[in-house]
Structures are given as C-alpha cells and as structure tokens.
Design a protein around this nucleic acid. Structure first.
Lengths: 333, 333
DNA sequence: TTGTAAGCGTTATCAA
DNA sequence: TTGATAACGCTTACAA
C-alpha cells in the first residue's frame, strides 16, 4: 500500500505538504503543489479513509437502515438517498433492520458512520441514547410509531392522505372498508393503519377489527393471506380494502384474480406508495403517491445539516397525491 | 466518546487487557475479564471501527456496485448479499456505478473496503489495476462484457439458457425474434444480447440487426421505445421479442396493451431474471429464472475467500430455469 | 511556504 | 496473566 510518506519521499517534501495538497489548502507554492501532484499520480496514491476518519472524526459515511431491501418502495427512497449522498461526497452503508439484533447496530455504526437514516423503525430508547451519546444524528424517513426527541423524521401528512382516500371510497358508495398491514414490530405500516382508522372515524365510518388483515408486508404474504380469507368465506365483511403498501395491494389483487373475485366489481383495492408496478397491473391500482426520491434528497440534506450541528427536523410538509386508477369503483349491488 | 482508555481506567487495568477482552483472547483471568466487561457495560463502550481498521488493515466492509438501485433484479441480488454478509459480520457499502465518475471509485473504496462486488460492469483496466495493487479483490456477479484476469465472476450459463429460450420460441413456430437491451456502457444486458445472438445462430435462425431495440434498461424507457416502434409501423419484423431484463419486458407488455397489440396473439414476449412481478402481470411473463439470492450468497462467500487469500472464481455453474408462462404462444397466422 | 511532531483509538510485540 | 509502548496513516497546531 502506498502511503502519504511514500509520496512525501518521492516528491522530496514533508508529509505535511502532501496533506496540504491533498486537502486543497491554499498555502502551497504552485511549483511544490505540482511536484506533489505528480508524485501522487506516479505512485497511484489514495488517502486511507480509515486513518483520515480516525483523525478527523468524520467518516463520510451515512448508515441506512432498511426493513426489507426487496421492497421497491424502500429501494426507491434509497435511490434519492444515494443520488444526494453522492453530491455530498458521502457513502451509504446499508443494513437490514433485524429486531432481534438491534443491539449490534451500536457496534456496526459506532465510529463508522456520521449519521443514521432509518425507515420508520421504532428503535429502543437505549439504542437511541447510545447514538445520542456518541453524537451520531438519527433521522427517520417516515414517522415511527414510537417517536423520540433525539430522532427527527420526514414524512408526508398521512392523516390527510388517508382522509382523502377514505373520502374517495365513501363517495363511490363504500361503507365497509378493510385494511391490510404488517403491524407487528411497530412497522411503518402500523403507523399508516392507525391514521387510516382515524380517517375512517373522521369520515363517520366504522372500522371493524375483523376487517384488519395481518400480513408480512410482502406481496407473497399478502397473496397468501387474502387467498385464505376468501377461501374461508367469499362473503367479505367489506367492499373495499386499503393496503398499507402497494406490494400487498398487488398480492391482494392477484389473490382475487386467482380466487375468482373480480376487481373492482366485487372488491375495490387501494394501495399506498405508488410504486412503479401499480400502473402496470390489470386493473391499474389506485394509490397514494409518496414522493420517494424527493424525500430521499431531503433526508440526506437534513442529516448533513444535523451532522453540522442543526436540530432534528420534524417535517411532514411533503406533498402526497391520491392517484385514482381502475382498481376502485362503485360496489356492485 | 468513550474510548478504550476510559474503560481501562474505570476497570483499573491496562489498555491492553481491555483489548484482550474485547477480542476474546483467552489469556485473561476470569475475574479480570468480568471486571472489564462490567466497565464496558457501565460506560457503554463500543470500539471505534476506524481505529481498528487502521491498525488491522481490515475494514469489515464490502463495496457493492450497482447499475441501478431502482432495478428489482439488482436489489434482489443484494438481498442475498446482505444476508450472507451479515453472517460474516461484514457491512455492505453501496454505490451506483456512474461511468463518468469511475475514477472516484478508487478514492471511495481505498482503505474502506476489503473487497468489491460488481454487477457486470466493465471497469477500466486502470481501475482494476489500482485495486489489484492495493490487494482489494474484485468479484463480479454476472460476467462482464470485458473480462479481466484479476476479476472473477459468478453467473449462470447464459448461452445454454438463451438456447433453451430460443428453442422454446422456435418450437412454437417463431422464426423472426427481436431483442431489446441496454447495450451501451457494456451493460450486462449487452452480454446477454451477444449470447442470444449466438443462440439464434445455433438454432439456425437469422437475427436481423433491425430487430434489436435499444432502451435504457428501465421499464419506462422500454415502454417508450416499444410504443414508438409500434407507432412507426405496426408491422413488426418479428413475431416474438426477448428482453434482456424483466423490467423491460413489462414495459414492452404495457406498450403493446396501450397500442392495441394483443399478447401473446400478436406478439410473444419473454424476459430474463424472473423478478417477482413477472408472475403478476396479465398475461404472466415467460422468463429465465436467475437464482438471485443464492448467487448473492455465493458472491459473498467467494469474496470472503479471496480476502483470505483464495483465487478469483469463474463460476458459471449455477442453475437457471426457463419459466414458461402465458406471454409466449404460437404466432397468429 | 514548509517542516516537526503530537495525537486520533486501536492492536500487537515484548517484557515484566 | 498483565502492562508499557511502538506502530497504523493521517491532520493540524506550531515552529522555522
């Protein structure tokens, strides 16, 4: 490995000068700079990030905590994160959140990450306090079910969005509306569910606990859950169902198809997120658009600001949009 | 920040002993170990990764180079990577490959990564040699168009797979078969295209250059490209089309739908990869199954072996499978 | 404008 | 079984 010492020797200057050049200090004579640059070039020198981090206490790395790397909603957010991080010269280090291994996060990220971006996870207070103590800012894309003062969040106003969706279904004539979510582990689906229920109430509709279908959050588990439900009794207690995520909505749609239920005639389906595939299913899916890339940008900007001393934001001012497509219509009878 | 010195002072031992305990050396008296462990607990100590890396020259990080984080094929592979990396106590650091910024990779990964996993990119020889010089192993999931001795690869036997797909279409009665790919930047689609052309030849079918449709590799760009093609002239020079990636196949399918072409009656469509959505389109898509997760596992195992001194693998022994669904059938007339 | 040297938090060698 | 202490490669006062 070629180090800064090698460059200094090769260029016939001191190690400090090499640092000055590498870090673009403006106190180096032009001729010296050229000499150093040439030595760097000839030797193929690149500064060792670990050494630099140790000294500067900046890692230029941001941790990102996924729930599921296979979920295109989450990777869609990370698309925005990655683009903006690149502009800030930050690297992203991805981890999947495994509740039973939460304690490992401290070891993984300490001294390796300047900040941590979550996707709606409700970390244990103890974990949050650890990062707080080390001055590593935490920021969640999507408001977690359990909030914490140290952790800011960026999200869309889900209550307003859910109200609009419920109103849409109500105006079509639906009174009984089901919901499918992964509410275990205080998943962000859970947060959406709570707000949906409030929206139902605000619309003067009653939500029946039996109309909450639990699934693992994936397309497959939603398919499996819905198939079971239909097979148990084709008489559903609702004429429309809202899914906390689009993947689940697609799974529900497929289950209906395979079980002989016609969408939207027999059942209206709506999702959340507006992932790409929702406009390529048959029928296309009604959903709430979540501006993934923009929120990704915003998240990186915000955490960079926090790293540089700003306060944690609590921003739910982002625009959503109710996208009405062909999976929702008047109920049959 | 609480350091090893703090722990040593708190426990009344020397810093060395703390290291011994943290690294599970077996030369510490049980009582001393307990004392140290307790101090660690009380202080909330976690070793600083940067310092450790500097000393040990191991970063416990593996770089992963995406072409497109929004492509569910690539994130599907990373699902396997992440799971297996976790078992090896490695963290993954994700970057999107931007050809014009290839030179930055050296700075980003040097001294920060023990190895680098690519997704079929053809890096410049100069870049590869840099990593070679620093002893950072390179491993590609998918054989790149331009290979290099220092970089191993893991892949399925695409030629055999393409032969099987072409035979399937031929047996249905197709003679003219089109192909859609993103062949710029020596993308992995390009490699698939070259093998497809050879498979056509092996099947005694002629491939016409005009039947190669270029697209950006995304669903949207494929949709756009196919729509333009149909609008230019609904008389297509082929009765079936193979897409180098499933996302493109879905885009082509949607374009046909919107332009009034019936699939598979007017046009048969096949994809590659077997991403989740291919079994949820209407009609469902014929495709080549790529064992993403298993290859992800294998890739991490292989690069760990290389980090520990093994040779670069060149493994194309992985099983693929031709999945025949409803998007391919006999041509009309 | 350049050089010297202290120190970042570790690991590891060598003595004690 | 433990403790000093010298690296690791870098940044940054401070001195020259």
């Amino acid at each position: 490995m070629v180090t800064r010492d090698d460059v200094a020797r090769h260029a016939g200057v001191s190690v400090a000068v090499v640092s000055y050049v590498v870090n673009n200090k403006n106190n180096v004579r032009e001729e010296t700079r050229r000499k150093v640059l040439q030595a760097i070039e000839e030797l193929g020198y690149n500064p060792n990030m670990a050494a630099r981090s140790l000294k500067t206490k900046k890692t230029n790395q941001i941790g990102v905590l996924f729930n599921n790397l296979g979920n295109s909603f989450e990777t869609g957010i990370s698309l925005g994160l990655e683009q903006r991080a690149r502009q800030h010269d930050q690297s992203l280090i991805f981890q999947t959140y495994v509740p039973s291994e939460e304690h490992k996060l401290k070891a993984i990220f300490t001294g390796r990450t300047d900040g941590l971006i979550l996707m709606g996870q409700s970390l244990k207070p103890e974990t949050i306090e650890h990062f707080s103590k080390f001055g590593i800012p935490l920021l969640s894309v999507m408001k977690p079910v359990h909030e914490h003062a140290y952790m800011g969040s960026i999200d869309i106003p889900w209550f307003a969005a859910m109200c609009e969706l419920v109103e849409h279904l109500k105006s079509l004539g639906h009174r009984q509306i089901g919901f499918m979510a992964n509410t275990v582990h205080d998943h962000y689906h859970h947060a959406r569910f709570l707000l949906f229920r409030q929206a139902m109430e605000a619309a003067g509709l009653e939500f029946q606990q039996q109309s909450l279908l639990q699934s693992g959050g994936t397309l497959e588990s939603a398919y499996e859950r819905m198939s079971r439900r239909i097979q148990a009794s084709p008489e559903l207690p609702f004429t429309a169902i809202v899914c906390a995520g689009d993947l689940m909505a697609i799974g529900v749609l497929s289950a209906c198809k395979d079980c002989g239920l016609s969408v939207p005639a027999d059942l209206s389906i709506a999702g959340c997120e507006d992932i790409l595939m929702t406009s390529h299913t048959t029928p296309t899916l009604t959903t709430i658009h979540y501006p993934r890339k923009e929120i990704g940008y915003k998240a990186v900007d915000a955490i960079m600001a926090q790293i540089n001393g700003a306060d944690a934001p609590a921003d739910t001012g982002f625009g959503y949009e109710l996208i009405v497509r062909h999976s929702t219509a008047k109920p049959k009878q």
